[in-house]
Simulated assay, not measured.
Amino acid sequence: MVRNRVQCIIPPYVLEAIEANGTPEQRARAAATLRIDAVVRADRAEAPTAPPQPAADVTAHRRIYDAGNTTNLPGTLVRDEGDPDSADVCVNEVYDGFGTTLDLYGQVYSRNSVDDAGLDLIGTVHYATDFNNAMWDGEQAIFGDGDGSIFNRFTIAIDVIGHELTHAVTQYTAGLAYRNQSGALNESISDVFGSLVKQYHASPRQTADEADWLIGAGLWAPRIHGAALRSMKAPGTAYEDPLVGKDPQPATMDGYVTTRQDNGGVHLNSGIPNHAFYLAAVSFGGYAWEKAGRVWYDALTDPSLSSNAGFLEFAQLTVQKAEALFGADGRQRIHDAWAQVSITT
């Protein structure tokens, strides 16, 4: 089945708020970003995903391109695997972010690149002009420069880079449909592993208690009142500003949003499984990628997980994985985490 495989870090409702509340220039930039998002979706919608071919001896190479503020993809190759640092900070941030994401998946979960078959990673920086988004388009990651007044450059946050590459992992595993609850799970899983990439990258590495559990910290320009795009620890509290609105994410099913917007609320309702993961991670303690992350990874890659899975199906599978991995204690911790967001497994 062909699915829309373009996923963006900035929800459409944020850009729509800027269109409503911003200056003429800010409104124009937001509208341009929404138009470009739609064009990329249309271009990629019919591109089929080739099934990964096992090739354990193949090593993924990173290739970073510069679009030169055009929408031509991938652009001009500016840094290949093994090349020295570039004079361009965006190029280096993506190259290093790709490397850390590969390390997390490879060293912790024994996964060989996003497809588990050594797929090369392609990233494009300086996409379009003042482009306020980052995305995975089904074939590569794309990063805008931001407009400088509302958003900083989209390569500034390593969890955003990990987030986009995790969309590729989901594409090559469960293939979660990008709508309604399965789409919210898709977004949440990218937030989960994007956060784990950030914690794994930190020096020293961060435990669950030490992590900030913020997604996209540093993306808001100084004038915007907000800590990040989303908070896994406290969904709904990441930002509140007259220009971009208030973070609308619910933390539990009591606040679940039924809507036709945002592909059925994929960026909104992802706060619910996000919060469940946070609760599970702090319950286990230690490094979140070791126990809670392992449970989530094993659930995502289980062939029984359907592409249209809802929250309950995924939650039940995580409980099963936790018991298999960590016994009755692990099962109870995962069960309790989901119960606290009003999902009873």
Rank of each mutant, 00 (worst) to 15 (best):
residue 155 T to M: 03
residue 115 D to G: 04
residue 38 A to W: 02
residue 173 T to S: 07
residue 308 N to F: 13
residue 232 M to N: 09
residue 172 Y to C: 01
residue 92 N to D: 13
residue 160 V to T: 13
residue 224 I to K: 11
residue 191 D to Y: 05
residue 266 V to R: 06
residue 325 L to W: 01
residue 143 F to P: 09
residue 187 E to T: 01
residue 110 S to C: 11
residue 70 T to S: 15
residue 114 V to I: 13
residue 133 N to M: 09
residue 134 A to V: 11
residue 260 R to Q: 14
residue 264 G to Q: 08
residue 36 I to G: 03
residue 283 S to F: 05
residue 164 E to Y: 08
residue 62 R to N: 06
residue 23 T to I: 04
residue 246 K to Q: 14
residue 28 A to L: 13
residue 50 A to R: 15
residue 269 N to Y: 09
residue 16 E to V: 10
residue 112 N to I: 06
residue 334 I to N: 02
residue 113 S to C: 03
residue 106 G to W: 01
residue 240 E to S: 15
residue 85 D to W: 04
residue 242 P to W: 00
residue 107 Q to A: 13
residue 28 A to R: 14
residue 97 G to Y: 07
residue 53 Q to C: 09
residue 311 F to R: 04
residue 150 I to S: 05
residue 84 P to H: 10
residue 89 V to P: 15
residue 197 V to C: 06
residue 312 L to F: 11
residue 63 R to L: 15
residue 216 G to M: 09
residue 125 V to M: 03
residue 134 A to N: 10
residue 63 R to E: 13
residue 92 N to W: 08
residue 324 A to I: 06
residue 72 N to K: 15
residue 135 M to K: 12
residue 162 G to H: 05
residue 7 Q to L: 12
residue 188 S to R: 01
residue 13 Y to W: 13
residue 48 P to E: 08
residue 238 A to D: 04
residue 315 A to Q: 02
residue 221 A to Q: 11
residue 53 Q to W: 14
residue 329 D to Q: 05
residue 34 L to I: 07
residue 339 A to C: 13
residue 11 P to L: 00
residue 212 D to I: 06
residue 178 Y to L: 13
residue 77 L to I: 06
residue 22 G to T: 01
residue 305 L to P: 08
residue 100 T to F: 15
residue 281 A to E: 06
residue 238 A to E: 09
residue 98 F to N: 06
residue 235 P to V: 09
residue 216 G to H: 11
residue 79 R to W: 08
residue 280 A to S: 09
residue 190 S to D: 03
residue 246 K to F: 02
residue 76 T to V: 15
residue 65 Y to I: 04
residue 130 D to T: 07
residue 320 Q to P: 01
residue 302 D to K: 08
residue 249 Q to E: 11
residue 35 R to F: 15
residue 306 S to P: 14
residue 116 D to M: 02
residue 91 V to I: 10
residue 5 R to S: 03
residue 117 A to W: 03
residue 71 T to Y: 08
residue 200 Y to H: 08
residue 27 R to F: 05
residue 229 L to A: 05
residue 187 E to L: 05
residue 153 R to M: 12
residue 187 E to H: 08
residue 254 D to G: 15
residue 55 A to V: 07
